[in-house]
Simulated assay, not measured.
Amino acid sequence: MQITEPFGAIDLVDEETGPVLRLRGEVDSAVVALWDASDQRHGGAVAVEASAATFLDCRGLRLVLRETEAARRAGRIPELRRPSNPVRRLVDIAGATPLFATIA
């Protein structure tokens, strides 16, 4: 299932290493609200694919942190894969960079 908004999308895909949260377009409060209201399983992401995200607001970052929290509690450092410049900038400004293994 994919949650979409006219300008952004979030979905969770299963990969060999575990669930990966994919962000595309403008991941803002409206997109996060759709994700939260969906019946999509939440939590447990071991990685975030953010190369196609053109915008990420604070609520979007909070979602990313929440969706990867279980991996951190299990002693695993979630991957932040190919973050776009806007995503990288917000993660850096928020001081969340140490919470991820960033893959360029």
Rank of each mutant, 00 (worst) to 15 (best):
A94C: 11
P6S: 10
T68D: 04
E79A: 13
D11R: 06
L65M: 01
L34K: 10
P98W: 14
L12V: 13
R66L: 03
A96C: 02
A53I: 05
G18T: 11
E16C: 05
L23M: 03
C58E: 00
D92A: 14
E5D: 05
A37R: 08
V46A: 05
P86V: 06
A96F: 02
A47E: 06
V64A: 02
R73C: 15
A37T: 05
A37F: 13
V48F: 01
I3V: 11
H42A: 11
G25A: 03
A50D: 08
S84T: 00
A9K: 07
A94D: 09
V48L: 10
V31E: 08
P83S: 02
V46I: 08
V48K: 07
D36W: 14
L21R: 01
A104C: 02
A33D: 14
A74W: 01
V13K: 11
L65N: 13
A45D: 10
L90M: 07
L21Q: 05
E16R: 07
E16W: 09
L65H: 04
R73Y: 04
A74M: 10
A104R: 03
I3M: 01
G60N: 07
E69F: 08
I103S: 14
T102N: 03
N85I: 09
R66P: 03
R89H: 15
E79W: 12
L99H: 12
G43H: 13
A70F: 04
A37P: 12
E67M: 03
A37G: 14
L63M: 10
G18V: 14
A47S: 07
P78W: 12
Q40P: 03
V31D: 00
T68S: 08
V48Y: 01
E26M: 04
S29G: 14
G18C: 14
G75E: 11
A71Y: 04
R82G: 03
V20Y: 05
G18N: 07
G25I: 07
S29Q: 15
Q40I: 07
R73V: 12
S38Q: 10
R76M: 15
A9R: 07
V20Q: 08
T17G: 13
A96D: 06
P78R: 12
V91D: 06
V91H: 07
V91Q: 07
G43V: 14
V87Y: 02
S29F: 14
R22N: 13
S29N: 10
L99G: 02
E16G: 06
P6I: 02
R81N: 05
D57Y: 08
G75T: 09
G75Q: 01
F100G: 08
H42N: 08
I3K: 15
G60I: 03
R24E: 07
L65A: 05
